[in-house]
Simulated assay, not measured.
Amino acid sequence: MTTNVVIVDDQPLVRLGFRMVLNATDDIRVVGEAGDGATGVRVTQQLTPDVVLMDIRMPGLNGVDATRTICATAATSRVLVLTTFDLDEYAFASLKAGASGFLLKDVRPDELLGAIRAVAAGDAVVSPRITRELLNRHAASLRTAEERADEPDPTAALTPREREVLLEVAAGLTNAEIAQRLVLAEATVKTHVTRILSKLDLRDRVQAVIFTYKHGLPRR
C-alpha cells in the first residue's frame, strides 16, 4: 500500500529535498505541499493524507496550532513534526497537540522513511525516554496531585495487567523489555498495548506517556 504524505514547511528547498527523498520510494508518495500552517491545514483536510510532515516555526499559523487543528479535524491523518533542535521548546506542545512524534530536520533519509512508515502504521517515532525528558522539562505545567484529588481513576477501564503494562510503557520500555520484565510473551505485550490505547482513546505510545504524567500515575 502507498502512504500519502503532505509536506508543510515555509522553506521551498526543504520541501523539495523531502519530496525528492519520498518520491524516490515505491510505497510513499507526496500528494501535497504547503508553505504555512493555515494552508497546511486546508491541504490536509482536502487530501486527507496518511502522514503530515509539519514544520514548527512558520509565519502565520505555527506548526503547533496547525497540528492541533489537524488532529481535531482530520482524524485519519497523523502528524510528524520537524524540529531544528532535539529538545526544541515547541516539541512538547506539539506532542500534546496530538503529533505522533518529531524528527530533526537533518534526519537521515532512511530514518525519515522509517519514521513515516511507522507513523502511518499507527506507531510513534519518538522514544518514550525522550518524551519523558520533555515532560520533565515542562513538569510545572502539569497538574499537581492535589488538583487531581477529586478526579475519578483515569485507568478504571484497564485490567490490573494492562495498567501494569501502561506504567512500563511510561517508563520508556519497549515491548521486548516489558515482556522480559513482566515475564510475558512479546506478542502478549503488544496486544495489551493495543488494548490500552483503544480503551484510553490514545493515538500512540507517546500519548500514553503523556497520559501517565498528566494524571500523575506512579513512575518507576
Results as ranks from 00 to 15, higher is better:
Ile70Ala: 10
Ala74Thr: 14
Thr76Pro: 01
Ser77Ile: 01
Arg78Trp: 00
Val79His: 02
Val79Cys: 11
Val79Trp: 00
Val81Thr: 15
Thr84Pro: 02
Phe85Ser: 14
Asp86Cys: 07
Leu87Glu: 14
Glu89Cys: 02
Ala91Gly: 06
Ser94Cys: 15
Lys96Pro: 01
Ala97Phe: 00
Ala97Cys: 05
Gly98Arg: 09
Ala99Gly: 08
Gly101Lys: 04
Gly101Arg: 05
Leu104Thr: 15
Leu104Ser: 08
Lys105Phe: 03
Val107Lys: 06
Arg108Asp: 13
Pro109Phe: 07
Asp110Val: 08
Glu111Trp: 00
Gly114Pro: 03
Ala115Asp: 12
Ile116Ser: 07
Arg117Val: 01
Ala118Glu: 13
Val119Ile: 12
Val119Cys: 07
Ala120Arg: 02
Ala121Met: 03
Gly122Asn: 05
Gly122Thr: 05
Gly122Phe: 04
Asp123Tyr: 07
Ala124Trp: 04
Val125Gln: 02
Ile130Phe: 03
Arg132Trp: 02
Glu133Cys: 07
Leu134Gly: 12
Asn136Ser: 13
His138Thr: 11
Ala140Tyr: 06
Leu142His: 09
Thr144Leu: 07
Ala145Glu: 14
Ala145His: 11
Arg148Trp: 07
Asp150Cys: 03
Asp150Ile: 03
Asp153Lys: 08
Thr155Leu: 04
Thr155His: 02
Thr155Trp: 00
